[in-house]
Simulated assay, not measured.
Amino acid sequence: MAMASEAIVKVKEIQKGSQEGRKQWGLWCDTRGNGVRDPSKHTPEFLEEFVAQYNAGGRLESPAPEKVETLAELVKTGQRNSHHWQQAWTLYCQRFGHGVNDPYKHNSAFLVGFMDFLAYRGCMAMYGSVLDAGYNYWDWNESYDPRKDSLVQKIKAMQRSNEEAKRQWWQFCDNRQGGIRDPTRHDVRVLQEFLNEQGSS
């Protein structure tokens, strides 16, 4: 119960802190929480996941206005033609859609959220395959921000060469960044803050 209360407080603080915070919570609920925006109606895990991604700089984009019927039919087409798509949709609805599998009973934001989820996971899977095959000509984690990419590479190099530095990075992420240890998922401010604390710039 205490964990749930703490998570609710964190979400409310984000909402009160800025208009962007309120917007992001709304989008998070629309795409993953079936449009339910009352924090007390969600699990602690759902709330903590939002807090972690928000604090790490992750932002959701407002979906382009699309007719629900068009998006729902796209989901239906995927279900009819792909067993894996159907399985992914079912699991997604169980976790984020209160077990409601009928795409016509969800809003457009939820349907777009599912497609974005598949695209993100697909990129991660292909990125892993590229590395396994030994090809590095396509960097899926490249941010196109030279400064950020440089900081990310520094932190990765520190982790590879120094076990203590790796432990420090993990501790920094666990205690202050919601447990997100992938440096590519943090913004420049967070990366630079860690390096400054380590005496590296």
Rank of each mutant, 00 (worst) to 15 (best):
Q171K: 12
N34F: 08
K76D: 08
L151H: 04
K105D: 07
G122V: 07
A88K: 13
L71T: 02
I8C: 09
R37M: 05
E45M: 10
E164W: 12
D182C: 10
A52N: 06
D30P: 02
K41V: 01
V75H: 04
F96C: 07
M1F: 06
Q192C: 03
V152W: 03
Q159R: 15
I8Q: 04
K67N: 07
A52R: 09
R95M: 05
A109G: 04
D139S: 12
S143P: 01
D145W: 06
H84N: 14
T77R: 10
S108D: 07
Q192W: 06
Y135W: 14
N141P: 07
L191T: 06
F96Q: 09
G122L: 04
E6C: 14
D187A: 03
L74S: 11
R185N: 08
V36I: 07
V51P: 05
S150Y: 00
V9I: 15
D149E: 11
T43Q: 12
A157Q: 10
G57E: 02
Q94L: 08
A7S: 13
G57F: 04
K10E: 15
N55M: 06
R167W: 11
R95L: 01
D102V: 11
A4R: 06
S5H: 10
P65H: 13
G58M: 00
K41I: 01
A125D: 10
P39H: 03
H42L: 01
T184C: 08
P183I: 02
Q153P: 08
Q53P: 01
H83T: 13
R185H: 09
H42S: 00
E61H: 07
Q159T: 13
D132I: 08
D38R: 05
W170T: 14
R37L: 03
G78P: 07
N196R: 07
L60S: 04
W140S: 15
Y127Q: 15
L74M: 12
H106S: 04
K154D: 15
L151Q: 03
Q153A: 15
N196W: 06
D139T: 14
A2K: 12
H42I: 01
